[in-house]
């Protein structure tokens, strides 16, 4: 089957290049695997139907083609009509049966995909913002709740339930390799299950148009073995790292006396605003700015100074800091492991 699929990619679509990692057809979870299977089932059915219809159309046209310009219309052809009636009836019957097959498999797959559940799942709250993702790992003990942004860690092989909501407009949560998408609707809260089977880093993306920076509203899903996940979680629970390095302290000062503090939280400091992403463990993330830039000193500095260049319309204002303040700030942010 695998070979056939590869063949299909090559033959049917022509040599259209390599398989992409970020794809709904390279499943990394049981649900996306089911969907992928259903996709290919419908694909083959469709291909067969397409070929049949095209052949019949081409043959039907070619067999009666005439080149005369002034052709009088055929007025009657009872025998031909009778045969056509039979053929059309057969074709309609086959169509109906095929549709039933598609419907049945679709409903069965739908039930399987939706049926994922667990008594004691990993729970993640996802809140969509213009244009970033807030992820919370709630804990009955409030100070153990993990708040992070744009990077979601999940354990491999365990069902995860996502409680979705939106802070402003409609967003849609989607990791193609794992599961189909789910809209985050303002005024609605819903639960949504998924599971990752293969460890890896999967790209996620907002799928519902949500304004100027819809294009850059990405996130990363890190699927890792349970123990690594637990380590990550306990690391994230801690307040921000305290350093005695003077440049870090200087950067902390810059952070707390400039506009950063109006929007961001760094637990363990006075900064506690919820407007923008929580930065307590910023340095532990792979990407910044909604999975747009890699988390390095250079891109971080560029992002702070002029976010509108990277993401025009984003809500973060430009911060034209003097160079040494900026250096210190970046050093501080890079220290937030």
């Amino acid at each position: 089957m695998k070979a056939l699929r590869t063949l299909a990619w090559i033959i049917v679509f022509g040599l259209l290049g390599c398989q992409s990692n970020h794809s709904s057809l390279s499943a990394a979870g049981p649900q996306s695997k089911n969907i992928e299977w259903l996709y290919w089932l419908i694909f083959w059915i469709c291909l067969a139907v397409f070929v049949l219809v095209m052949v019949f159309f081409a043959h039907g046209t070619a067999r009666t083609k005439v080149d005369e310009q002034e052709m009088a219309p055929v007025m009657e052809n009872p025998e031909g009509d009778r045969r056509a009636r039979v053929a059309v009836s057969v074709a309609v019957t086959v169509t109906v049966i095929t549709l039933f097959v598609v419907l049945a498999f679709s409903i069965v797959t739908g039930n399987t995909v939706e049926g994922l559940s667990s008594k004691n799942p990993v729970t993640i709250q996802i809140i969509g913002h213009q244009w970033w993702w807030e992820a919370r790992y709630p804990n009955p003990q409030a100070d153990l709740t993990v708040v992070t942004a744009n990077e979601i860690h999940v354990p491999v092989g365990l069902p995860v339930v996502v409680l979705t909501s939106s802070a402003d407009v409609i967003h849609s949560f989607w990791v193609p390799n794992i599961q189909g998408k789910r809209d985050l609707l303002p005024g609605y809260q819903s639960a949504f299950w998924f599971q990752a089977d293969k460890p890896g880093i999967y790209h996620g993306q907002c799928a519902e148009f949500c304004g100027e920076q819809h294009a850059h509203m990405g996130f990363e899903m890190v699927a890792e073995p349970v123990d690594k996940f637990q380590n990550w979680l306990s690391q994230q629970r801690k307040p921000s790292a305290q350093s005695t390095d003077p440049s870090v302290l200087r950067g902390r000062e810059v952070f707390l006396t400039h506009s950063c503090v109006l929007c961001h939280t760094v637990r363990g400091t006075d900064a506690g605003s919820k407007v923008g992403p929580d930065l307590t463990h910023l340095a532990s993330r792979r990407m910044i700015a909604g999975a747009t830039l890699s988390n390095e000193s250079g891109s971080l500095a560029g992002w702070i100074t002029d976010p509108q260049r990277v993401k025009p319309g984003v809500l973060m204002p430009a911060n034209p800091l003097p160079p040494d303040d900026l250096d210190a700030l970046v050093t501080y942010l890079r220290s937030l492991q």
């Binding site: 219809v53 019949f56 159309f57 039907g60 046209t61 067999r63 009666t64 083609k65 005439v66 080149d67 005369e68 310009q69 052709m71 055929v74 052809n77 031909g80 009509d81 045969r83 056509a84 053929a87 059309v88 074709a91 309609v92 169509t95 109906v96 549709l99």
Partner: peptide
Amino acid sequence: IPTAVQFFCWIATLWHGRVQ
């Protein structure tokens, strides 16, 4: 289904016509 019926009818028309 109705869309398919239309397609089949068109093909049948061509099949037993004299196509220019």
